[in-house]
Simulated scan of single mutants.
Amino acid sequence: MTMHAVRIDMRFTGPPPGDVPAAHLNLFLGALRKNGQVCGREWPIVMDSGACVTTVLTPAADSLDARYHGTYVRRCIADAQLAGITFAWSLIGEECDSAEACGCADPGAYVLFTTYLTLESPVRCMDCFGPVPLYRFTAPPDTEFHDVISWQSDYQSCDHLQMNCTVLEKAATRQMSVIDSALSAAGRACCAVLSERAGKPFYYYLYRDKGRSAALEAQRRCPACDGPWQLPARLHGCFDFRCDNCRLLSNVAFNLRASYMMTAPDQLPAPIAPCPP
């Protein structure tokens, strides 16, 4: 199961409203996005046979089912009906370039993870590493996933800057790498809220760009508790460090990955077990 492309039609039961019709559709799409039912924030809107039409990406084929609607989505639909507007959607097909979604019945834990290339949900299953739709973590009444989506947008902006290597590269990389940065603080706060809703551990990923040597990388300790956190083997092709006590993940510095993998085992410290939960 991957993300799906879905066509959404906004139709009018009478004459179109006097204001810009697309504004009503944008309100609906914004509510769906903040509820985790729509991924991304770019949706071209066109008029087709008297209806406003757009194409969106959804986490799954059934993501727009009414059972997943949050408070604001239901309110938006009700307000639209009073204005003589109805919404309908139809499945176009699978999105060919997205990650395989989580199909685990009962994941043991989750991680907050995204990149500048990612359109999927920023929550990943720690068992299969597949994206998990946000609406699975039912929000309390009158709340949305605004904090999680805002964090994802901020993180991806920083990732863009550090990948472009032109403007604010060092500042952006620090936000992604340091545990006490504003970005990390916001992300860990999201993890705490989501963990409470799910009743499962939520991990936060600290990006590691550059290091001085493979041996020093292997000696890194958890930046929160200073405990051992080196993993005996790379997890999901991404993570080399995990602290179960502080619920943090990280990687061997990208500039040293090749030399770290090629270093003879007897030249590196022995693998250290992660902190106990």
Rank of each mutant, 00 (worst) to 15 (best):
V178H: 15
E94D: 13
M126W: 07
V73M: 02
R74E: 13
A172N: 07
A101T: 02
L91D: 07
Y135T: 02
Q81F: 12
D106Q: 10
Y135G: 10
E120N: 05
Y116A: 14
I149A: 10
R124Q: 15
E169V: 00
G130T: 00
T118K: 09
G84P: 01
Q81V: 09
A83S: 03
A185Y: 03
S121K: 01
F137S: 06
E100N: 07
G130Q: 00
A88L: 04
E196I: 00
R136D: 10
L112V: 08
A78M: 05
W151D: 03
A101L: 04
C102L: 04
H160F: 08
A83L: 01
P131R: 02
G187P: 04
Y110K: 07
Q81K: 14
T173D: 12
D180K: 05
A88Q: 08
P141C: 11
G93C: 06
E144H: 06
Y205M: 06
D147L: 09
V132C: 14
Y110W: 06
W151L: 10
G108T: 08
W89F: 14
G93I: 01
C190V: 12
R197T: 06
T114N: 13
Q156G: 13
T143S: 15
H160E: 04
A105R: 06
A139S: 15
Y205G: 08
I77C: 11
R124V: 05
A109S: 14
R174L: 11
S177G: 09
T166H: 12
T173P: 00
L134H: 14
G103R: 06
V167P: 02
R136P: 02
Y207S: 01
S90H: 13
I179C: 12
G108K: 10
D79S: 14
Q156N: 13
V123S: 03
A189D: 12
A186G: 11
H146E: 13
A172S: 13
R188Y: 09
L183F: 14
D106L: 06
V132M: 08
P201M: 05
K200N: 11
P141A: 15
D106T: 11
S181Q: 04
C125G: 10
L194P: 08
S150T: 10
S184I: 00
S121L: 05
T173L: 07
Y207F: 09
R75E: 09
G84L: 03
A186E: 06
L112W: 03
M163Q: 08
G93H: 04
T114P: 08
R174T: 07
Y135K: 01
T86S: 13
C96K: 09
M176T: 00
H146Y: 08
